[in-house]
Design a protein around this nucleic acid. Structure first.
Lengths: 156, 156
DNA sequence: AAAATATTGATACATTTTATCATTTTTTTA
DNA sequence: TAAAAAAATGATAAAATGTATCAATATTTT
């Protein structure tokens, strides 16, 4: 049970519990399993991928797909997970407790890299202000061809 | 028939025809109507909104919704239109023949403003290079609360 | 421990997008 | 320019994705 000794995870768990309390929601086995899985599997998952991941790794949990959708929505609203939406697919979810970052995505193989850039963030804030907006968050995705696919000379 | 004398539109049309020729596709009334509508109605439309717009403005065209989807996908692949995807809705389409720009979106009322920023574009290119990517395009969407909604003090 | 409240899984339903296919339109060919 | 070839169309079935419903169950409050 490495989780019980993991400060980072414990912190996350407390944050989630706090959100639940504030909204008079309940802390359930399913919600805990979902959070734990998000923590243990860094990456970007569609709800369905997530569902399968949990079925495989927590065979006894028996979580319904509806609960996956419900919980991911809840976690997104609480800003504990971030949703990425691109391409033909629906939204992909990832834990938001890491420092903010954006994504570079390979149009050929779907590889996703993460990066962050303070100078861009700063400009974004300025631009929002210039337009009278109060900036809450942003999405930035760079698309291109990754080194591997470039070598393979695969066009799009 | 102002289109016949409109250089900008003619150019767009030629571009479209060129894409069609290259792919052994055919230039049809429906495809022309869709391109024309995109040109005449700047904005960001869902396929369904687009469908209704055409039904209203070109009552004789009688285009099926499937053709709207098919043509928007084709135009997107050809980079003649750009698709924006955010929130719970599907993709919104707009003509891509204007200078590149990004979007600020109000989380409350859905208002979309456009902007461009050369310094961000430059950084993006650098970041892609640092990661070995060949950058082809990007999406950047800033989210926040627009001035009007701020005044109304409507939270999210 | 009982009552109150919220959650769950299963699944029906809704919505959005794509696939199918007979018919029509466009383009090519001779 | 008419016939043949190729592709597109509209209608609609089917798939894909996400949400709502509801009886049963779990959690929290009292």
């Amino acid at each position: 049970m490495p989780f019980l000794e993991n400060i980072e995870y414990d912190h996350l768990l407390e944050e989630f519990k706090s959100v639940l309390r504030k909204n008079s929601l309940k802390f359930t086995k399913q919600r805990e399993t979902i959070l734990k899985t998000l923590y243990n599997f860094p990456g970007h998952f569609l709800p369905e991928e997530f569902y399968n991941l949990i079925k495989k790794n927590e065979p006894n949990s028996n979580i319904g797909i509806a609960t996956i959708y419900r919980t991911l929505n809840l976690l997104e609203e609480s800003e504990i997970v971030t949703a990425l939406s691109f391409g033909k697919n629906g939204k992909k979810y990832e834990l938001a407790n890491k420092p903010h970052h954006d994504h570079i995505i390979c149009k050929n193989c779907g590889l996703i890299l993460e990066f962050e850039d303070k100078s861009i963030e700063k400009r974004q804030k300025e631009i929002a202000q210039q337009n009278g907006f109060e900036l809450t968050n942003h999405i930035m995705q760079l698309y291109g061809i990754c080194p591997k696919c470039k070598r393979k000379k695969i066009g799009i």
